[in-house]
């Protein structure tokens, strides 16, 4: 996670995991969000709570350029303003009826969501390409202990596991849960990708064991 005094960026998902017309739940330091991509490909992040009666917007549906709540169909644009209330089709909703949104940047196959007002752009991961994401039931400390290395200020952790070099982009979820994005050199072969994937799985198991042991004390 990249922080400056006014805000921070969290890598919440990989681009490939958010096709157009879909919405998924995601976590940021500011709380849960509904991460969605419009039909035209634009990613947006809104608070995961419909202002009508509190339903999670991440359970909703994307139609065209809007995100609709699954409960009563209230529809929101990328800027968060409510565009339509199906039970009252004659009303043009005022722009004050809205859901909070967060800035979103997408680069190099990673989707970053901003919390607060970050003054800088998200980090460039030059030459690195995301492979896949996985959840670890382990906090940052357990992961760093398992890796024998620390993540840098961008959340990037480089280490060697099972003689394999691996590069991970970490996102804090909970005290004991971390989202891991596995990164590779752009020109990796299939065999290298498989080796990296296996090494990451091994690292995760190691970190989860450390976490479980720490919490059982």
């Amino acid at each position: 996670m990249l922080s400056d005094p006014t805000g921070s960026w969290t890598p919440v998902a990989l681009s490939v995991d958010l096709p157009p017309g879909t919405v998924v739940p995601a976590r940021t330091p500011a709380g849960p969000i509904a991460l969605w991509r419009s039909a035209s490909g634009r990613p947006s992040a809104s608070a995961d709570r419909c202002p009508h009666r509190g339903m999670r917007l991440s359970h909703g549906f994307v139609r065209g350029e809007t995100l609709s709540c699954i409960y009563h169909g209230w529809s929101y644009g990328a800027a968060g303003n409510c565009l339509r209330i199906p039970a009252h089709p004659g009303l043009s909703p005022p722009e004050t009826i809205r859901v909070a949104t967060h800035p979103v940047e997408e680069a190099g196959g990673v989707i970053w969501v901003g919390v607060g007002e970050p003054a800088t752009q998200p980090p460039q991961l030059a030459g690195l390409v995301p492979l896949r994401s996985l959840q670890a039931q382990a906090g940052m400390a357990a992961l760093e202990a398992a890796a024998g290395a620390k993540a840098d200020e961008n959340g990037l952790l480089e280490t060697t596991q099972n003689s394999q070099e691996i590069r991970l982009l970490l996102a804090f979820q909970e005290r004991d849960e971390t989202l891991i994005h596995v990164l590779l050199d752009g020109d990796s072969s299939l065999l290298e990708r498989i080796a990296v994937s296996r090494a990451v799985e091994a690292l995760r198991r190691k970190a989860e064991a450390i976490e479980a042991e720490g919490s059982s004390r």
Binding site: P51, H52, R53, G54, H72, I85, A87, H88, I97
Partner: peptide, 9 residues
């Protein structure tokens, strides 16, 4: 206070 009930509600 954190909701917007309408006449349909």
């Amino acid at each position: 206070g954190m909701e917007i009930p309408t006449r349909a509600d």
